[in-house]
Amino acid sequence: MASSSSSSFIGQALTNSRDHHFDWSIVVLKNGVHTVYNVELHSGMTGTTAMHAIRKAYKGTKPTILWFHARSLLKDAVISSFTASPDPEAQDYPRSVIIASNRPLIELTKAFHDPSLLAGSGAALIRENPQFNPKNPTDGHYHAILIKTEASRWLFVVGMASTILVASVIGYVVGHFTRTAILGVVAGATTVSVFAFIQASIGCSFKE
């Protein structure tokens, strides 16, 4: 009888462990401001299921994505203590935060784009990244998964080629109709300058 009770207790404990719910924090860019959201997970989730939940939550935030951005990147972000909630029980999500620092999460970025890569990993994803739980600050700091996008290098190259082509056409047309080579050169140079400024702004996103 005691053995049966013991087995029942162990089974109940395992069930409770699988059903343990908690949150992970993700940060996305909304209207130029980093905003933190919580994603509800549970300890019984496999890595693939957890990543699907993160992807769904990210899309649900309707993040600001510029047209020339193509690929999402995941980073381990440290939230500034000035904006981190001192009370993990406070339900003040979403809210704006300041990112103090961040580092790339190469493996999680690959899994974000292809969750099937985590098939067979069990709950390793959750077990090995407890820092993203807002109730478990690491070294006194609150961490979150920063999900951002980067500019497409392909679009960047196409933009440069298009700049040269458009500048050449404009310069030729202006020079032909005004019969002044100097005006054609000036028009072409002005076009290049405008596009160069735009492309430089885009290029900055590679370094963020």
Rank of each mutant, 00 (worst) to 15 (best):
A124C: 06
S162E: 00
V185L: 11
F132Q: 03
I145M: 15
S193L: 13
T138Q: 09
V28L: 01
H69M: 10
G32L: 02
N31Y: 04
A77T: 08
K135T: 11
Q199H: 14
D23R: 03
T48L: 06
S121T: 11
G159T: 09
H42M: 04
W154R: 10
S6G: 07
V158E: 03
P134C: 10
S205C: 14
V39I: 00
T180W: 13
A90D: 02
A196C: 07
I147H: 12
I10S: 10
T48N: 09
P130R: 02
D19K: 05
V186P: 06
A200I: 04
A57L: 10
V194I: 15
K56W: 05
S168P: 00
H176C: 13
G60H: 08
T109V: 08
R179W: 07
M160Q: 12
I99N: 03
G11I: 04
I106K: 11
G188I: 00
I198G: 02
N136V: 07
N102T: 07
R103N: 05
T191Q: 05
G171N: 02
G60P: 06
F112S: 12
T163I: 05
F195M: 10
F112V: 05
A161M: 13
K148D: 15
R18N: 05
T61E: 14
A161Q: 05
F82H: 12
C204I: 12
Q12S: 12
K59P: 00
Q199W: 13
L73I: 07
F156N: 10
H21Q: 07
H143M: 14
A50T: 00
L73H: 14
N102D: 11
S116N: 08
D114Q: 13
S80E: 02
S201D: 05
T178H: 13
I98G: 04
T191V: 13
L29F: 02
A111P: 03
V186D: 04
T64H: 09
E89M: 07
K207E: 15
F132H: 04
V33N: 03
D139N: 13
D92R: 09
I147F: 13
A111V: 05
G11D: 12
S81L: 12
H42G: 00
S4G: 14
H113Y: 09
H20M: 07
L14C: 11
K62F: 05
A57I: 06
K207G: 11
N102H: 10
R153L: 15
A123N: 02
E107D: 00
N133I: 02
G32T: 01
L41Q: 11
A167R: 01
A90G: 03
G175D: 03
I170C: 06
H52T: 08
M51I: 15
E150L: 13
I147S: 13
P94D: 06
V166M: 08
T61M: 13
